[in-house]
Amino acid sequence: MKSNKLLSSDRLFDIFNYALLGIAAFLVLYPLYFIVIASVSDPNAINTGRVLFWPVGFNTTGYEKIFADASIWNAYKNTIIYTVVGTAINIVMTMLFAYPLSRKEFFARKGLLFFMMFTMYFQGGLVPTYILMQKMHLYNTRWVMVLLPALNVFNVIICKTNIENNIPNELYEAASIDGCSHFRFFGTVVFPLSQTIIAVLILYYGVAHWNDYMNGLIYLRSESLYPLQLVLRGILVQNQASADMMGDIESMIAQQEAAELIKYGLIIVSSLPVLVVYPFLQKYFAKGVMVGSLKG
């Protein structure tokens, strides 16, 4: 049925397409790969462009300095606290809100949806929120990091849509005839049946907490409370490797070289947890995007 000419043009398309996607994948992957090999290379080799595809002059000074630095450990600990506690709060709150919003017969459903969506379009803004956090004595406490981002409108909608699609209405009808209340239905049916969506939410909220630097920047003053990203900013972007990190290094050049290595190492150390969890949750999150078709 097909003419030869068409076949060859399709062939050409395929070759072109595979090559293009291959190049795209390479361009995305290479910078990440480069950071990995650079983190264990000789800074001199990096600066002269000799590190391209494999590490040159194996060297772990960067990692040694990072692991010896107390402020990074402390920031790491803080970020873990914010991520674990924050995500737990997120999951409970999101489920609590998503279930009632998924009940079509619930009289306040439309009103509450509007009540929530409205905050997406109109916000108090930076300064009023900042003043409020101060008045509530949340400013410069750990609480602000886990309470302020306790709910996310998109995630509530994803979760609500998922409950609507995955838990048949008949199930509730049958249960309610047997005298099952909403509380019990929520606890014994909805929660256990929502494992997939909870996995997706853990990923979304967890990554957001892990990568958050803005709330720390605005609402935290004490360095002992700083999350990892804020400390990273100082070192990666503002070039302030802390003095005690460099303590025993004498010459300026050696210090500069160590600072470079610390940067590479820090990128790996700070991104590792997310990138390690990612393949395991990968099969879930594409689903999350799909059920989250944005219409309420």
């Binding site: 905050t119 916000q123 009023p128 409020l132 306790a150 909403h182």
Partner: peptide
């Protein structure tokens, strides 16, 4: 019929009032 659903919503609604609507008052 729906009071239990309202109770479930309570914490999220308080959250939105405190962290999103109160700052609007501050505008």
């Amino acid at each position: 019929r729906d009071w239990q659903l309202l109770v479930l919503c309570l914490l999220p609604v308080i959250y939105y009032i405190v962290f999103h609507y109160l700052p609007m008052y501050g505008v």
